[in-house]
Design a protein around this nucleic acid. Sequence first.
RNA 1: GCCCUCCUGGCGCAAUUGGUUAGCGCAACGGACUUUUAAUCCGUGGGUUCUGGGUUCGAGUCCCAGGGGGGGCACCA
Length: 473
Amino acid sequence: MAEELSIPYRYEATAQAGALVAQYSGLAEGESSGVKASVAGRVMLLRVQGKVAFAELRDETGSIQLFARANDLDSFDAFCSLSLGDWIGAKGEVAKTRRGELSVFVESFVLLAKARRGFGDKWHGINDVDTRHRQRYADLWANPEVRTALRTRFRIVSIMRRALESRGFIEVETPMLQPISGGALARPFVTHHNALDMDLFLRIAPELYLKRLVVGGFEKVFEIGRVFRNEGISPRHNPEFTMLELYQAYADYGDIMELTESLVNEIVTELFGASKVVYQGRTLNFAPPWRRATLEELTSETMGVEVSIDLGRDRLAEVGKQVGIEDDPSWGPGKLMLEIYEKTTEASLWDPVFVMDFPTEVSPLSRDHRSKPGHVERFEAVVAGRELANAFSELNDPDVQRERFAHQVEVGRAGDEEAMSMDEDYLRALEYGLPPTGGLGIGIDRLVMLLTDNSQIREIIAFPTMRPEQERD
RNA sequence: GCCCUCCUGGCGCAAUUGGUUAGCGCAACGGACUUUUAAUCCGUGGGUUCUGGGUUCGAGUCCCAGGGGGGGCACCA
């Protein structure tokens, strides 16, 4: 109780560890700066040696040693009985010890919070992946690289916001609870509104609402936010993840390609000072212009023979069989083509490439290609073998959109749980007129993985989805 | 959802072909030490080996079921 009462409600540090180290690392061994500083942070190590004691204090910016002597510090005994993990504030002169370690020579200190649990082995930290993800608060301290990666994540989002705003986009918010789940092909989470006594879906994409805003007169909008998909968890999938979606009136997918490569390159350059980054031991070059090639060209390249939807369904089914795709009678040639591309080609693409002109069949919200029947003006930006972005010239003809929805409804009746539903309100919006519009979606988590050299999505999500722990005591 | 694999004190790890009271380091607790760097030295306590069954004279080790984790497949971003 006494201890609890003695813990202050605030503490004013005059310096942070990182800044002190940067400023005074030039001191000679045994030399004092003559400056007093107060620092606050967590005790990471403690070495008591009779009438002197050394502690490593870590704050958000780094670590600095605390040096305490019984002669100079009245509460020396209390200092020695600190636990690893305790938060303290300490004040004293900044100087180097005889051994040349920059330290705060503690004249007074105050306990800010007691750590009643330890942060694992002081050398190995916490290794158990289960514990690390369930107790992220401890993981973040025990394994500083985790905090570094998350900080990079938050910074990427921040840079992205600024970059978009500087291009005249405004950030908007649209419903997460939606009566109709649309804008992507995925299974939604379902929840219930009691007062309205109706089911609502957690959004799988903000797309259809953002385009409604364009109908309403917002010409350049973006939203960075969480979407939810009721699918399996894997090293690359979390049920909730963060997407950027943006829409630009009067633009087509060509404009969006230019925007995408410049936007991503701007983020990379601001983070690393260059357009090249190393991912999983290989260099990735984000410098524009990125390669542009059609889905069919790229697939033909890897197959060594011409592959396109012009081959017709039967020929494509044969090609699919050759590469190990088992045919599904509900698929048309477009879906087969996409399957073949994904199976044979996508993973082999390394440096950023715009994979263009998808089959209409698999792109219910994209506008028909201006010159290639059966195709839409859609691209995916593929980096390191994975889709990073998905974009298209938006379909703005309400009649065509209605047909596409109708086809989706059919597919859904046939058992595809990811099919879209008819969205009459969205069609009504289109009937008011959606100007030619280019749209883009970027998976922020995937981008962060690339830029933090992580192959595991869990590592760059602060609190990844997990099964609850079993109830204990 | 399917397949493979892992689960030992707070943390990191051990335990020979199943064989005596399950070891070690860190942390904790007590003691020594006035310039340490994972400080060192002496001492102490702490585990129903994920849970529940089973095989066996004997199970941390083998078998079955369940729980949780990880990887792969499927699905997707």
